[in-house]
Design a protein around this nucleic acid. Structure first.
Lengths: 204, 204
DNA sequence: CACAGATTTCATCACTTGTTGAAAATTAGC
DNA sequence: GCTAATTTTCAACAAGTGATGAAATCTGTG
């Protein structure tokens, strides 16, 4: 709805009048459709239709559907290191709360879109599981546990990942109520302490 | 590999010699392929090939790919009520441990197959999210929280679901180490107490 | 053995997929 | 204003999808 053209006219050929960059329009449309349908479910034609251009533009501007997916979804919209810095900035005993608050806030801002897109494409696309692992484990949670002076840093990191990913699944993908609609403070109060135990508590 | 035929002969027509039930062979093959590839990724032809029969048998025995998916994957292989009974049988303060142990043991026994299959088909197939919700929320965790005499039963149920689903995602779908390879006791010691807090603890 | 019914394969349908090459229309440089 | 480069649409491809109807083959009953 955001970028579609409602015209059904015979649509004359040739270069566009000017202004809007088709490459950017395609990226937006692709992100939207990939989020809603996953990699295989999102067809090149449906993406092009939502962008209001011909399907051939995908190959012209991105070479392949594969590459469009990488550009639109796989490429992280922010730097993990600044996120880690923000999560480590504050009292160590409240790190769990900060993790819960930051992820919930960030994902809520986009309706959970990018998260859902990646999860929904975890089968279709070979690299998606690796991207997930690289981001959650290596770039974020391993960095945090390593900065906390605790034992079993890898296990603690994967446990945190399990809770954060599970929260994302329930809140944005399968949408279990009331967690799906709970406000951020409720989520932080519920999930934060459990994350804190994974980080610094006794895990057996 | 389990049910395939390695023959490349011209394969004569007509009714089979006898013995193996094609319907059951197809169900096994379907489960295997749906698990590995998701609903859209698993083609009728690939399922039939793995079963060693013609693709037309799918429509002959199940009417449609849709119905085969329902029969092979969506239909729960066990009764949720007996699971709930087992989870509630014992000291209430160890319910979290029992949940962690039971789900891990059950899923480990099948390599996490059915869980992965459902998650992987959560986009492609409209009913999958509903099946997930119906099972985890309504049939299992809501029943447990209702039997525990605590407040906010729905919120606690969805929180438990988030941790259990997250554990399943990390252990069986994206496979984050070391949680993916940790033995059951380690998982129970780590996850159990967090589930217990969601069930009977102070969640804000 | 004959024959009705069940089971299986085959050939094919209509449709959708990602991709490509050429033609048409527009813009930019001189 | 002419020309070259860029952008866009169109038409079509080969490959693959789920599904279907008929023919071929087997089984079971009489």
């Amino acid at each position: 709805m955001t970028t579609a053209s409602d015209q059904t006219e015979p649509k004359r050929r040739g270069r566009r009048a000017g202004g809007e960059d088709t490459k950017a329009v395609l990226l937006d449309a692709a992100r939207e459709v990939f989020i809603a349908r996953g990699y295989e479910g999102a067809t090149v034609r449906s993406i092009a239709a939502k962008a209001g251009v011909d399907a051939a533009m995908v190959n012209h501007w991105f070479g392949s559907k594969e590459n469009l997916f990488a550009q639109a979804v796989l490429k992280l919209p922010f730097d993990p290191t600044v996120l880690v810095a923000r999560l480590l900035d504050g009292p160590p005993e409240q790190t769990g709360d900060r993790i819960a608050r930051n992820f919930t806030t960030i994902w809520d801002a986009t309706g959970g879109g990018p998260f859902a897109a990646i999860v929904r494409s975890v089968t279709s696309h070979d690299g998606v599981a690796n991207v997930l692992r690289e981001f959650f484990l290596t770039s974020v949670f391993a960095k945090i546990t390593e900065g906390l002076d605790v034992d079993r840093v890898e296990l603690r990191a994967s446990l945190c990942a399990s809770q954060v990913i599970g929260m994302g699944m329930v809140r944005y993908v399968v949408k279990f109520e009331p967690l799906a609609s709970a406000d951020v403070d409720t989520v932080v109060a519920a999930v934060g302490p459990n994350l804190q135990r994974y980080l610094t508590g006794d895990i057996g």
